[in-house]
Design a protein around this nucleic acid. Structure first.
Lengths: 212, 212
DNA sequence: GGCTAACGGAATGAACCGTTCCGGTCCAGC
DNA sequence: GCTGGACCGGAACGGTTCATTCCGTTAGCC
């Protein structure tokens, strides 16, 4: 074993718990829900036994991660709204924090397991927070008016794209294109009309309820 | 069999060839290289036998599709450059045509099979054409100067994202966010500096050469 | 009317993955 | 210092999926 840190078996178990969660987040983000459990165990430096001692199944691990991610997103949105001085800075901060936390991972889980009432509640709370940020930014005139909260969800998913040589580079590029997108969101001297209706909430949640 | 159209066996074979290619393009685009061959056969309304009579293996089919897509992209870029009156309109037309043709499909193949010299040549020709479009647009001042041709490649890949209820909706949303991105590409009264260096060509091609 | 080429789809065999099980290892209490 | 029980890593198992092949059938051509 590689118990290099201090503490006994108990401490190792506690440390493993965090390590596993982080490893799972990374692996699911990179490879999607189809990533093998063995990949998560390997990334965490842990055997399969330890993985299944904490989570009865792959689905339980994914659900746990999903809920954690949604809670993080909600807190991020609510903090941004409360602490920032303008709608625009709240929007920028929320979007940046979201892609830093790899929020796109959750999208990989759509349709893989049934949604719980808790997840529905979290999702509704998140939707309200994002809508509030956007309303404030739109009201102060710092965002073009044809943008909706549904757009924000899709834009975050779009930015999840993950194909650069190193993980660091992936992060850098994601930030680069978020910046570009945010400039596109601002009111423009001659804005190009956006084609097609914006995404609606039913449309977004549909992907979660249909289990193919 | 469902030989509903006119013509004999020969004609059916010829029709099948196109149908198979289109079906493969769609399925690979939606599900990635891991899509089962049976899904392609089903989409094309054709048996497995007919599939393997035309392409010796899945890899051969994918390579064929890849080359076709690269040729299409190159022709699209060169035509846009030759026929459009401004760099900006050439850029817009090229980007729009590219996502309409589902150019992101090619990205799914990165690292799945070895690259041929033909593919290298096609890729270099495409890079030159995209660079020429961008140079012209930048020179006339219609694109912010911190954008490179490597950025265009990544932006096209980002827009490949594919998660809406219906295929039609997917296309609409892609166009919507392309429009948003293009507005972000234009010179802005107070442009936000883009973080991180732009992608380089070696960086882009690396993903193809490493076969994990 | 039979011959042959092309067809669709079932059969095959290998690879992969989620989950379980087991032999070894380490700490706690005596 | 020694031992019992909890915990660990990883190999083994069973099921599923998929690329590829094979074969009985069918539709045009002579």
């Amino acid at each position: 074993m590689t118990t290099s840190q201090s503490g006994g078996r108990k401490a190792e178990a506690a440390r493993n718990d965090l390590t596993v969660l982080n490893a799972a987040r990374e692996v699911f983000f990179e490879q999607g829900y189809d990533a093998p459990m063995s990949a998560i165990a390997e990334r965490a430096g842990v055997g399969m036994g330890s993985l299944y001692r904490r989570y009865r199944s792959k689905e339980e691990l994914a659900r746990c991660l999903c809920v954690l991610s949604m809670k993080g997103t909600n807190e991020s949105a609510e903090r941004a709204l409360a602490e920032e001085s303008s709608g625009w800075s709240a929007l920028v901060r929320f979007m940046a924090e979201s892609i830093d936390r790899g929020v796109g991972m959750v999208a990989q889980f759509a349709g893989e397991f049934p949604v719980t009432p808790e997840m529905v509640a979290l999702s509704e709370r998140g939707a309200a927070a994002m809508q509030a940020i956007l309303d404030r930014a739109t009201a102060e005139g710092s965002v073009r008016p044809d943008i909706t909260a549904g757009d924000l969800v899709y834009l975050l998913q779009i930015l999840r794209t993950n194909s650069a040589p190193t993980p660091t580079r992936v992060t850098t590029l994601r930030t680069r294109y978020l910046t570009l997108l945010l400039d596109g969101l601002r009111p423009h001297p001659t804005p190009t009309p956006l084609p097609g209706p914006a995404p609606t909430w039913p449309e977004i949640s549909t992907r979660w309820t249909q289990t193919p």
